[in-house]
């Protein structure tokens, strides 16, 4: 990653929040793939369960929400003004 890459604020929910002990973090990145890689690098607890070390991308049970839009597109551009959330995918239960 080149120096001078903008910092992105990422709000963490659910397991990522518990693993890092943080509700909000700031990492460098211009795309979601770079953000995911930076998250795993700065918070090793996320590597494996949330970010796949082999691909550097989030596991199937997770999604990003960028400016209100859900996405799993690693090339999605982000910047300092972006609202970025890392969340678990949703699925309802029985009853």
């Amino acid at each position: 990653m080149s120096t001078g890459t903008a910092t992105v604020r990422v709000e963490l929910f659910g397991i990522p929040q518990l693993l890092t002990g943080r509700r909000q973090v700031e990492v460098p990145g211009r795309t979601l793939r770079e953000v995911a890689g930076a998250l795993a690098q700065e918070f090793p607890a996320l590597a494996g369960s949330v970010v796949d070390p082999a691909t550097g991308w989030i596991n199937g049970g997770y999604l990003f929400v960028v400016d209100g839009r859900f996405t799993r597109d690693p090339s999605c551009p982000v910047g300092p003004e972006s609202s970025v959330l890392l969340v678990s995918a949703q699925a309802g239960g029985a009853s």
Binding site: F13, G14, I15, L18, S49, N59, G60, G61, Y62, S88, A89, Q90, A91, G92, G93
Partner: peptide, 16 residues
């Protein structure tokens, strides 16, 4: 037991 159910196993639906 894979990532598709991790949220439910580890935190439960209250995470919503």
């Amino acid at each position: 037991l894979g990532p598709g159910t991790a949220k439910y196993r580890e935190l439960g639906t209250a995470a919503n």
